[in-house]
């Protein structure tokens, strides 16, 4: 890693991106997970195209929710294990910015690819082509909130050995609004209705999460490292 010159949050974002790039194979896991979960539904529900296309918006969104959740657990974990998180927390640079930077990188390496792949998965479930733009854009906006809210959970459970299952218990209820409006946008588009208001609300959630989630995550990291 080259010597840091920019502000701490930028250096941390750069380092996290580099780590993610070097572990490229790991980044594919959420995508494979998304694909497998979506493939389970035709096997469980039956192959009838009408049935599948009716439930496709919800199924793709739930699968994306779980895929995003799965990758969230590692958001602060590896830094906690090797001690660098302690240095980050103790450093004079604002923890708000570094937490936000880490969450943003998490979105770039998990939420963003999940969003880009989701139309393909939705195609497997016979989602009408007219709904694809709605799916893509609602995913891109919605996964921002998922990464940020998930980051709070990851920060809360970072010091716990068995954080994974607990994390899903803490975070999934908080994902409800994103799921409701995300799948509603896709549903509306599939029926040929306007879907921009849903998208605007998802944007509002993302803004609220960008403002508040790093605060909560920073507080949670301090609490976990103080003990």
């Amino acid at each position: 890693m080259s010597a840091g010159t920019g502000p701490a949050w930028l250096e941390i974002a750069r380092r996290d991106l580099l780590i993610a790039f070097r572990r490229r194979a790991e980044a594919a896991n959420p995508l494979v997970f998304l694909l497998i979960v979506a493939a389970l539904f035709p096997l469980g529900v039956g192959p009838a195209p009408q049935e599948l296309s009716r439930i496709a918006p919800g199924v793709v969104w739930v699968a994306a929710l779980l895929a995003s959740l799965l990758s969230t657990d590692m958001l602060f974990r590896s830094d906690f294990d090797d001690g660098s998180l302690e240095q980050i927390v103790r450093s004079p640079s604002p923890l708000y910015a570094t937490a936000l930077a880490k969450m943003a990188v998490h979105w770039l390496v998990s939420g963003c690819p999940i969003s880009l792949v989701s139309p393909v998965v939705a195609g497997l479930l016979y989602l009408p082509a007219a709904a694809m733009p709605a799916l893509l854009f609602s995913m891109l906006l919605g996964t921002v909130t998922l990464s940020l809210v998930g980051g709070i959970g990851a920060a809360l459970t970072v010091g716990l050995r068995k954080g994974g299952l607990l994390l899903s218990l803490l975070i999934l209820p908080l994902y409800v609004p994103v799921l409701v409006f995300g799948s509603a946008a896709v549903d509306a588009a599939a029926h040929g209705l306007p879907w921009h208001s849903e998208l605007a609300i998802l944007g509002g959630f993302a803004l609220l999460a960008v403002t508040l989630a790093p605060l909560a995550a920073a507080a949670a990291l301090r609490i976990n490292l103080d003990s």
């Binding site: 809210v149 709070i152 809360l156 459970t157 010091g159 716990l160 068995k162 954080g163 607990l166 218990l169 803490l170 908080l174 909560a216 507080a219 949670a220 609490i223 976990n224 103080d226 003990s227």
Partner: peptide, 23 residues
């Protein structure tokens, strides 16, 4: 569940406080 997961009572309570504020 979060409260029960921590060993130290104080940490548990403060983590739960953050979670309930998020809630």
């Amino acid at each position: 569940a979060l409260y029960e997961a921590f060993e130290s009572r104080e940490t548990a309570a403060r983590a739960c406080a953050v979670l309930s504020l998020v809630g």
